[in-house]
Design a protein around this nucleic acid. Structure first.
Lengths: 194, 194
DNA sequence: ACCGCTTTCCTAGATGCCCTAGGCTGTAAC
DNA sequence: GTTACAGCCTAGGGCATCTAGGAAAGCGGT
């Protein structure tokens, strides 16, 4: 019986394709095994269980995402960097909805600690925001604002949550503009704006 | 054999509790039946299938959420209204993670059209933003920005995505401040900020 | 070429969930 | 009391996760 030549890496890559095609919630061990022409029980030599598979995919996709962002941001600063960051983020989320959805799942804190991808993400984001002259704790607040907005936007958009008859790309650009404005005039204590 | 007295309403309420306790993804027909001491097949007289149950829960939770927001926003305007809106939104999401997760699912467009809750949400949001003097298409852009940020923030927070040692509530207030600033100085064409 | 070891893949089977078809029994209306 | 319906049942098919244990392919060393 000819072997399929399974490895963890090939499994994760195939899982990424499957998730993008069918949706992350329809990523199953059986479906993945079917794709390799193999019984589902065979996958359990390479992957502990479904959750393990999902976690691996999440880390894999997180790495891909930050690679794209890093490439887009490289050599830029200020608003250019922010726009490039936002563009790379949204493009990835729309191109690879399944992979992107995978990055949202809750991951064991122990795995997060020694994942280089997540640390790079933090470094790049904080680095970009330091260009706006922010210091702690405003820096962390701003990072959370950016992450939330980008993430929320992509989730809502790819879920079809934006029904109004207005180009989503144009809205996105405006949102990035607005964030840039908020970052440059970041509200500090004692400065009222009412 | 004593009857459990099932109705669609009781099922949806129990589903809401179950989702909050165990997580929306673990809401199942079997688990719900078990909670009523009844066989799972019995539920199918009241609910078409699992997706139907999820959809009903989504609309139910969406109604609860907008009720809270409406009560918080009532009689307020400007930054006060925005803060109240944001507070009610986040409180609900954190108090009822399962219900809130339910509001995120994709719903049949036909059902959306005749759902009063979703229309009220749009009305209240647009109404609040008109106070900032925004007109279309900036109005829609701003609505999308707010929804995305609020949603993204709640998802990330309740997923434990904010690891840094900084009070999340304080960060949230800062984010709302920043959004208020962005809304009051909304970037319009021809006004560069670099 | 042969042997043994590890890895890869298999079959068999337990368990759980979704859902349908069809049957029995409270309850309420006549 | 009879009838009709609504509420709950059993039985069963389909598909998913996951475990246990077995066979064989491919690797090394001799």
């Amino acid at each position: 019986m000819a072997r399929a030549g399974l490895t963890v890496e090939r499994l994760v890559e195939a899982a990424a394709e499957l998730a993008d095609e069918a949706g992350f919630d329809r990523l199953s061990v059986s479906a993945l095994a079917r794709r390799f022409g193999v019984k589902d029980a065979s996958l359990y030599s390479h992957v502990r269980n479904l959750q393990d598979l999902r976690t691996r995919l999440a880390l894999y996709a997180g790495g891909e995402l930050i690679d794209r962002i890093a490439a887009a941001v490289a050599g830029r600063a200020g608003k250019e960097a922010l726009t490039a960051f936002a563009g790379a983020y949204r493009d990835y989320a729309l191109e690879h909805p399944g992979r992107y959805a995978a990055t949202q799942i809750r991951i064991d804190q122990a795995l997060i600690a020694d994942s280089p991808a997540l640390r790079r993400t933090a470094e790049i984001t904080y680095g970009m925001l330091r260009g706006y002259g922010l210091t702690e704790p405003d820096l962390t607040d701003a990072v959370r604002l950016l992450r939330s907005t980008f993430h929320g936007y992509c989730v809502l958009e790819s879920a079809g949550g934006f029904g109004a008859d207005r180009d989503v790309r144009a809205s996105w650009d405006k949102a990035v503009d607005a964030l840039h404005l908020a970052l440059t005039h970041w509200p500090r204590e004692g400065k009222s704006d009412d």
